[in-house]
Simulated scan of single mutants.
Amino acid sequence: MVAGMWAGHPFPYHYFLLNAALGKLYLLEGDPVRAKEFLTRALGQTTRSREIAFIQGLLDKTT
Rank of each mutant, 00 (worst) to 15 (best):
T46H: 05
M5S: 12
R48T: 01
L28H: 12
F16R: 13
F54G: 00
T62R: 09
A7D: 07
K61D: 10
A53F: 01
Q56S: 08
I55E: 02
L39K: 03
I52S: 08
L58H: 06
Q56A: 08
E51P: 06
Q56L: 02
V33C: 00
W6D: 12
R50V: 06
R41H: 09
A20R: 11
Y15M: 10
A7E: 11
G23K: 01
L39Q: 02
F16V: 05
L59F: 07
E29S: 11
G30I: 06
T63L: 05
G57P: 00
A21C: 09
T62Q: 09
L22W: 07
A42Y: 02
R50M: 08
L18W: 07
H14W: 08
G30Q: 04
A20K: 14
D60G: 15
E51T: 11
T62E: 12
G57V: 07
A35K: 01
F54C: 00
G57D: 02
R41I: 08
L43G: 08
T40R: 11
L17R: 14
M5Q: 09
G44D: 05
P10C: 01
F11M: 14
K61C: 09
T62Y: 10
A20S: 12
R50I: 01
Y13E: 11
L27H: 06
I55Y: 05
R34E: 06
E37R: 08
W6V: 13
L59N: 09
G4E: 04
H14S: 14
G8W: 04
A42I: 00
D31I: 04
T63K: 11
T63Q: 10
T47A: 14
N19A: 11
V33H: 00
R41N: 12
D60H: 13
K61H: 10
E37A: 10
Y26R: 03
L43S: 08
A7P: 04
L17V: 11
S49E: 15
L43R: 14
D31H: 04
A42T: 00
F16N: 06
L27D: 05
Y26M: 07
L28S: 13
E37P: 00
F16D: 03
T46I: 06
Y26T: 04
G57Q: 03
T47H: 11
K36I: 02
P32I: 01
Y13S: 14
R48N: 05
Y15C: 12
R50W: 10
P32A: 02
L25N: 10
Y13D: 15
A53N: 08
M5Y: 06
G23P: 00
T63V: 09
D60Q: 15
M5L: 09
A42F: 02
G4D: 07
Q45N: 03
L22A: 13
G30T: 09
L22M: 12
L22H: 06
F54D: 09
N19G: 08
M1V: 05
L43D: 01
Y15L: 12
H14A: 13
T63F: 06
F38L: 10
L59K: 10
P10A: 08
L18S: 09
A21L: 14
W6P: 10
T40V: 05
Y26D: 07
Q45F: 02
W6G: 13
A7Q: 13
F11T: 15
K36L: 03
Q45E: 04
F11R: 15
T62D: 12
P12R: 10
D60S: 15
L22Y: 05
